[in-house]
């Protein structure tokens, strides 16, 4: 029987190093993140179900959705703002949720760091591209070949 000499005397008030907490990180970030999750969740319920109701149930309902329908909505500043709010809130809400999952399940700091980097880059790309599309969408771009354009575009 080999005796392990690294076993410490009980009650030596020694704390295993992996349990030591990093001190000094002040600030309210986690509190605001927690609050944002609740508020954005509430607003998203309204935005998402409003979006589904308008797109799928009003008028001809789901049969009305086509390129022209989307083009019509994005010609209206009201729907631009609606969709922008939905995009930003959903992306930030989802990103923070996945960040939380990474914090809870990744055990090593380096694993955490890289997972979070991938997450933040992916989120940033989607938010930037989505915002760009909402504001720069043009159903009838100039100088496009006629067969690619929808029927409602004025003849060039």
């Amino acid at each position: 029987m080999s005796v392990n000499s690294e076993i410490q005397a009980p009650r030596s008030a020694r704390i295993a190093p992996e349990y030591m907490r990093n001190k000094g990180r002040k600030g309210n970030f986690e509190m605001y993140a927690w609050l944002f999750m609740r508020l954005s969740g509430l607003i998203l319920v309204v935005l998402v179900f409003g979006h589904l109701f308008v797109n799928l149930m009003l008028g001809d309902g789901v049969h009305a959705i086509n390129f022209g329908f989307v083009a019509g909505k994005w010609a209206d500043p009201f729907w631009q703002v609606w969709d922008l709010a939905m995009l930003w809130l959903a992306m930030l809400h989802g990103t923070n949720g996945v960040r939380t999952i990474i914090e809870d399940y990744a055990e090593k700091d380096s694993t955490r760091f890289w997972f979070k980097m991938v997450l933040y880059v992916a989120s940033a790309v989607i938010i930037v591209l989505g915002t760009l599309v909402i504001f720069t969408f043009d159903p009838c771009p100039a100088n496009a070949s006629a067969e690619l354009l929808p029927s409602f575009c004025p003849a060039p």
Binding site: R21, F29, E30, M31, T100
Partner: peptide, 11 residues
């Protein structure tokens, strides 16, 4: 308890 590892880690 407003720490990064404080109450906000409660799920």
């Amino acid at each position: 308890l407003n720490d990064k590892e404080g109450v906000w880690r409660c799920r």
